[in-house]
Nucleic acid binder design. Structure first.
Lengths: 184, 184
DNA sequence: TTAATCATGTAACACGTTACATGATTGC
DNA sequence: GCAATCATGTAACGTGTTACATGATTAA
């Protein structure tokens, strides 16, 4: 359902084709929700069937023909209704889902040298991710200017802050874990 | 694939039925990977087809008949091979996927009072989750004794430490976010 | 001039979730 | 004595991922 509401949120800014949505999605929501292009097309179809979207088929000569989607009043209602009832998503946010932690859990089957190497690789990726946030930040600000509402930028800032705190925490954990294993 | 390797890891401790695996899974791996019973049965079938598992059908009179799975040498090889190549899972661990953050992103469409309420609900859940870790901790230690290898408990401890740091970070973020919105 | 990328998408498959089936046992 | 839970699973559906199709344009 999050893909659906993400698409409603973007179409709320203006009509777009599946292809454009797929790009905008990647430039904005991708930090916290990843959607494949093919999945977006399927979802748009379903959403039109449910009355949340309307579409118009536009002929083109130089490029392939395209289908432009726009949000209906029903879609806007659904979007606002969704935004107003965050309970289930908060619960879900409390769940961890990480194949990497499964590896840590089973790391006793490896030798300690390998486990430490794994944790070091992890901590390096954390450091990279932290650097990457600056880039993401620019992207999000460009997007903000495009949409042209400075009030909303506050919330984008909160998302970015989440990223900073999140990666810093992962890095902190990795360092402590390495120190623990090495300090025996 | 993580469900698969989780099951291999558990069956590496000894033979079990799908039903038992489903319970043990919930008591041990559930903190970082959730698998439905029905999914486990399907996966066991596939894994037997791939030669990672062997099974024996056992008749019972008081209870329904059952199928007991055990890991093959091929399965053990696959498990160790998987453990030794953590690259892809590390990359994946750097990705955030959170419908809740999508709500924060779009929170400009709501009024600020609602956004603050949402963040407060989130922070309360974080506090609960932190308390809940003690319980999870006991469960994991019981499980450790059952399996009877104290050396491996080190790694379970690391997983638990991850939980502590992770929820503390989420809580820290929520508090800062609330302060930011309220302090305007 | 050949390979990559753009601008559209469709199809197939893999993984995750929800609902249901069934006879025995335990709890109130 | 009736409802819930145990001990097994199966079936159906929804979501996410990977692979492919096609004609135009740009890059090497």
């Amino acid at each position: 359902m999050s893909l659906r509401h993400g698409l409603l949120g973007l179409l709320n800014y203006g009509p777009m084709t599946g292809y454009e949505l797929s790009k905008v999605f990647r430039q904005s929501l991708d930090f916290f929700w990843q959607g494949q292009t093919s999945q977006i097309y399927r979802e748009l179809n379903v959403m039109e069937g449910s009355g949340y979207l309307a579409s118009e088929y536009v002929m083109q000569t130089d490029k392939p023909n395209k289908r432009v989607y726009s949000i209906t009043n029903e879609g806007r209602d659904e979007f606002i209704k969704w935004l107003s009832s965050p309970g289930a998503d908060i619960d879900e946010a409390m769940k961890v889902r990480s194949a990497f932690l499964m590896r840590v859990f089973f790391a006793g089957e490896l030798n300690e040298r390998q486990s430490i190497a794994m944790l070091k690789a992890f901590s390096e990726k954390c450091a990279e991710a932290i650097k990457g946030l600056d880039v993401a930040n620019e992207a999000i600000e460009n997007y903000g200017e495009a949409v042209g509402d400075i009030e909303k930028a506050k919330y984008w800032g909160l998302v970015k802050m989440f990223g900073e705190i999140f990666y810093a925490a992962e890095l902190e954990w990795a360092k402590k874990a390495i120190a623990f294993l090495e300090g025996e």
